[in-house]
Simulated scan of single mutants.
Amino acid sequence: MNHIFYLMGKSSSGKDTIYSRILKETGLIPIVLYTTRPIRDSEHEGVEYHFVDDDRFNAMRDGGEVIEWRTYDTKCGKWTYYTASDSLSTENGDRIGIGTLQSYLKIRDRVGDDVIVPVYIEVDDDIRFLRAVEREKQQSSPKYAELCRRFLADNEDFSDEKLSEAGITRRFENNGSVDECLASIKKYITGFQK
């Protein structure tokens, strides 16, 4: 049976870095989510996300193609992130995705516990905050108020209680070397592929 390995963690936990490295170093097929938020300077269409407008989201949702979505009322306007059914087929091999706890739960409801495997990345808040500020400084137009909103929201969205309710017990610490965290995750994934 093929699986969907689903990376989750608070903002600036290293998800994007680990996700990119896993894609380069394994044969996993990416799940590319959709978003209505503007593309960042370092991002590429169809790689990190499919960047679409509200009309496209509404058409896909009305057509039954959207599995889950969430809209954030950010300091920069309303941004929607969503998973479409075209991204989840495991017919051609194991897949890997990245998202929130809520998106994980919706996808799990759709494909089942035996298909989706949670991979939760954890980082101490002080380290995570400093990483977030450094990343935001690199943007052509830093949005620090949005960084703070997201940082605080993540503490609620990924609370220990919610993780426990979702059945997520395995956590991968990324406080120091991303290489060590990545090696641990790859070993974990390999265990499911045997």
Rank of each mutant, 00 (worst) to 15 (best):
R110M: 02
G191P: 00
V123N: 00
E136T: 05
L152N: 06
E173A: 09
V119L: 08
A145L: 06
V115C: 10
R171L: 08
E122S: 14
D16W: 09
R37C: 15
H3C: 05
S141Q: 03
K143L: 12
S164R: 01
D157E: 10
S89Q: 09
G176H: 13
D94N: 13
S87E: 08
D86N: 12
A183N: 11
L163Q: 06
F57M: 06
R135E: 10
E161M: 02
N58P: 05
N155M: 07
G77N: 03
E43V: 06
R128C: 07
K162A: 09
K194Q: 11
I22A: 11
R108S: 03
D157I: 00
I18Q: 13
S141D: 04
G176E: 11
Y82S: 00
E136Y: 02
T26V: 09
Y144M: 12
T83W: 02
I168G: 09
E173G: 01
S141K: 03
W69E: 07
D109N: 14
K24Q: 14
R131T: 06
V66G: 04
E165W: 03
T35G: 15
C148Q: 04
F158M: 11
R95K: 13
E134K: 03
G63V: 07
E161V: 07
K15F: 13
S159G: 07
L101K: 10
A84W: 00
V32W: 10
V52P: 10
V178G: 04
Y19N: 14
W69A: 05
T83Y: 03
D179L: 00
K10W: 05
Q138W: 02
Y81C: 08
F5C: 13
R171Q: 09
Q193G: 08
Y6I: 12
P30V: 12
I18L: 15
I121W: 08
I98K: 11
I18V: 15
I4V: 11
T90E: 06
D124C: 09
S177E: 13
I116N: 10
C148A: 12
